[in-house]
């Protein structure tokens, strides 16, 4: 995994939009969405790789908070999803 920007709390990130062939822990409703990093949730072997029977090193995991309106088009609540860093790309602040 190559990443030029270190992730940090408060940073805005966009989730991967693709629908992978096999197992993933990026829920469908949170794909291709922009959220805010809340907190690191440790590091764990990437579930996508483990499900394919591949050995994997621990990868950083984050609590990422989304506005419901950004996920579903409506709602005034937030949804905080726990996501591997592999699913996330920092959003350039203009």
């Amino acid at each position: 995994m190559s990443r030029t920007t270190e992730l940090a709390p408060g940073m805005r990130v966009r989730t991967r939009a693709t629908d992978p062939v096999g197992h993933t822990r990026l829920p469908r409703y949170a794909r291709g969405a922009v959220g805010v990093l809340v907190e690191r949730a440790g590091a764990h072997p990437l579930a996508d790789e483990r499900a394919r029977g591949r050995a994997t090193e621990p990868h950083p995991v984050w609590h990422v908070r989304f506005a419901a309106a950004d996920l579903f088009g409506s709602g005034d609540h937030t949804v905080t999803v726990e996501l591997w860093e592999d699913y996330l790309t920092p959003v350039e602040e203009s």
Partner: peptide, 12 residues
């Protein structure tokens, strides 16, 4: 009252 939903989608 704001509502925060937490999705246990990984290891926590």
């Amino acid at each position: 009252t704001r509502i925060s939903v937490w999705d246990a989608s990984a290891e926590s």
